[in-house]
């Protein structure tokens, strides 16, 4: 493992986006950062800015209004990036499934890498999901590099 890959695993910066749910999972994510759960021992930092973030935590079902916003945010995140759907609503649509004004689950809008079920999710689950996401970051980067090599070879 190269130094950069190691540090990528050690320093996941997070942007957390609420797309219009009940905010229950929001509060649980914030609880992760508090002394009791202390996600920052994994190097997690909440940036509030997609341009600095590696991992996007999405909470809540995606409302139609939020669809464009969430794609914009996703596009502004630099590669490699991981999207984590936090809570039942983001993973499947939850109790909003089939409701008007909704796209349903998050994976219909942007590609999702990790699903964390639960209503609300427990902070332990969020941390577990984050750690799962860390390995995916490096995998994704390797894939991107391979594709670049391929397209170069093709050219």
């Amino acid at each position: 493992m190269s130094l950069i890959e190691l540090s990528r695993k050690k320093s996941p910066w997070v942007i957390h986006v609420g797309t219009g749910g009940c905010n229950g999972c929001d509060l649980e994510i914030l609880a992760c950062l508090t002394p009791r759960f202390d996600a920052s021992r994994f190097g997690v930092m909440s940036t509030g800015n997609p341009k600095h973030a590696d991992i996007m935590l999405v909470v809540g079902p995606v409302t139609l209004k939020y669809k464009e916003i969430i794609t914009n945010l996703y596009n502004q995140m630099p590669d490699p990036k991981v999207v984590i759907a936090v809570g039942t609503c983001a993973s499947t649509g939850g109790i909003y499934q089939g409701c008007y004004g909704h796209c349903g689950s998050l994976d219909k809008v942007v590609p999702v890498d990790v699903y964390i079920p639960g209503c609300n999710v427990r902070p332990e689950a969020v941390i577990d999901g984050l750690v799962l996401g860390l390995d995916i970051l490096n995998e994704k980067e390797r894939k991107i590099l391979e594709e670049k090599k391929k397209s170069k070879g093709a050219a």
Binding site: I4, S7, W13, S40, P78, D79
Partner: peptide, 27 residues
């Protein structure tokens, strides 16, 4: 972190952050 009774990130965390940033895409 210790003042807040947390474990906190390792001391070399700032270097992890910088190195990681050098491995990211430019937007």
């Amino acid at each position: 972190a210790r003042l807040q009774n947390r474990a906190g990130p390792p001391i070399v965390q700032p270097f992890y952050d910088v190195l990681k940033l050098f491995g990211k895409e430019d937007k």
